[in-house]
Computed example of a mutant assay.
Amino acid sequence: MKPIMQIYTKQNLIKNQFLILIRNISKNQSYLNSTSAQSASSSSSSSSSDDLILSKKLSQLSIDNNGIASLILQSSPVNALGIDLFREMKESLQILEKEKPKGLILKSNIKTIFSAGLDLKELYQPDQDRIKILWNLLQDVCVGLYSASYPTVAAMNGHSIAGGCALAFACEYRVMLPKFMIGLNETRVGLHIPKWLIASTKNILPRRLAEAALLEGRLFTTCEALKFGLIDEIAKDDDDLIQKSQIFFNKFNKTESLARATTKQYFRIQDIEEFKAFRKEDLETFLFIVNQEKFQKNLGKYLTDLKNKKK
């Protein structure tokens, strides 16, 4: 049996963590409660009244009159996830934790591409300090989305590959246009799937299917993704993507924001705490793999082939 003092200390720690969580969530509860409900029929026309919060080179953050935030990725040509884009996304998520919107729509303004994943050029013959920053930012953004106190939707207007899929999996709800691909194909390019991403995948797919898909590096078509549960809905066009996102947010009009946020945290707290415990190990594993001679050789060949295809 554990000593009484150890049990008492652990109970106090849990209690303190809960109180901190409640204070953080309730700080802006009045904003959420004052937000009016928006009907799905008017959702696609809301962009004209958006309040632009943060305009950067690679992304834009806005919140409309109904309290719905939009984080738009605009890093041509494929929304490759590099240091600069991650920094912008992290800043936007920090702003939203203070603003506490009614919901967040994560989307892309690049036709046919949600995100093609990590900027692989950063991984080839890498600067060690830069790839450490890159991986830490990937962790911050994905876990930040996953632990967000407000509802989140990935509105995918195109392919969502590798890191792009990780962003989508970190959101609560996923809507996608037809005839595109989604999946975590990291093992095909020689990278591992981190523990925190495996955890979020197992929350979406049955364990056996999740394991098979991640080991194989499988990509799913939109229809396959709906069938197996990677996405929640298929939208017919860009307007329908936003409309379906609005319908998802409206499901919570009758719920108390604090109660919803706290319940969400309880569902996800174990994954978040495990991430914190293994964060350093995750970075070390990433650095070990990226610096392998075989990985560098294969990545160099891949990037050369990709360059030749564009000629």
Rank of each mutant, 00 (worst) to 15 (best):
L209W: 03
N203C: 14
K179R: 14
F180P: 07
K202V: 14
V175A: 01
A213K: 03
V189S: 06
A199C: 05
V189C: 07
K179H: 01
L219I: 01
A210I: 09
K202H: 15
A213N: 06
N185G: 13
L205S: 07
S200A: 13
L184A: 10
M176P: 02
R188M: 06
A210D: 00
G217W: 04
L197V: 08
L215E: 08
I198C: 11
L219K: 09
I193T: 04
P178R: 05
I182E: 04
L205Y: 08
T201Y: 01
E186C: 06
L215G: 15
L214T: 10
K195A: 15
R208M: 13
V175I: 08
T201F: 06
L205A: 05
P178G: 07
A212W: 10
I198Q: 01
V189T: 06
L209Q: 15
V175K: 02
N203F: 13
T201S: 10
P178F: 08
K202Y: 15
A213T: 06
F180D: 09
A210G: 03
T187N: 11
G217P: 06
R188N: 02
G217N: 02
A212I: 04
L209F: 05
K179Q: 13
E186G: 02
I198D: 02
L209K: 08
M176A: 11
E216I: 12
L209D: 10
G190K: 03
L219G: 06
P206T: 14
W196S: 14
N203P: 14
A199S: 13
L209T: 12
M176W: 04
G190H: 01
G183R: 09
P194E: 12
R207I: 15
S200D: 11
G217K: 04
E216Q: 05
G190E: 03
M176K: 04
T201E: 12
M176C: 09
L209I: 09
P194R: 01
P206W: 02
T187H: 00
I204H: 09
K195I: 13
A212K: 04
F180M: 04
N185F: 15
P178K: 09
R174T: 08
L209V: 08
R188L: 12
R218W: 14
R208E: 15
P194F: 07
V189D: 05
I193H: 03
L205C: 11
V175R: 06
A213W: 05
T187R: 02
L214R: 01
A212M: 12
G183E: 02
T187K: 01
R218L: 00
I198W: 14
V175S: 03
P206Y: 11
A210R: 10
